[in-house]
Computed example of a mutant assay.
Amino acid sequence: MSAGRYVIDSRTGRVGQVMGREGPYVQLRPPGGGREWDCPPEAMAPAPPGEVLRARVRAINSEGRLP
Rank of each mutant, 00 (worst) to 15 (best):
M1A: 12
M1F: 06
S2P: 10
A3P: 01
G4Q: 06
G4L: 07
G4M: 06
R5I: 06
R5H: 05
Y6Q: 04
Y6R: 07
Y6G: 06
Y6W: 08
Y6P: 02
Y6V: 06
Y6D: 03
V7K: 05
V7A: 11
I8E: 02
D9M: 02
S10N: 08
T12F: 00
T12Q: 05
G13C: 01
G13I: 01
G13Q: 05
R14K: 14
R14L: 12
V15K: 00
V15C: 03
Q17M: 14
Q17G: 10
Q17A: 12
V18L: 05
V18W: 05
M19K: 13
M19R: 15
M19A: 09
M19C: 04
G20L: 06
G20Q: 07
E22N: 13
G23R: 10
G23C: 07
P24Q: 07
P24N: 04
Q27T: 15
R29A: 15
R29L: 05
R29T: 11
P30A: 14
G33N: 09
G33T: 11
G34R: 12
G34M: 09
R35F: 05
E36A: 13
E36D: 11
E36G: 07
W37P: 07
W37A: 09
D38F: 10
D38H: 12
D38K: 15
P40Q: 08
P40G: 07
P40N: 06
E42K: 11
E42F: 03
E42Q: 14
E42M: 01
E42Y: 03
A43W: 04
M44A: 07
M44P: 02
A45L: 09
A45H: 03
A45F: 03
P46V: 04
P46I: 00
A47G: 02
P48A: 15
P49E: 12
G50H: 08
V52H: 06
V52G: 04
L53Q: 10
L53K: 14
L53I: 01
R54M: 08
R54N: 13
R54L: 08
A55N: 09
R56M: 13
R58Y: 07
R58F: 09
I60G: 11
I60A: 15
I60W: 07
I60S: 14
N61K: 13
S62Q: 15
E63V: 11
G64I: 10
G64R: 15
G64A: 15
L66S: 08
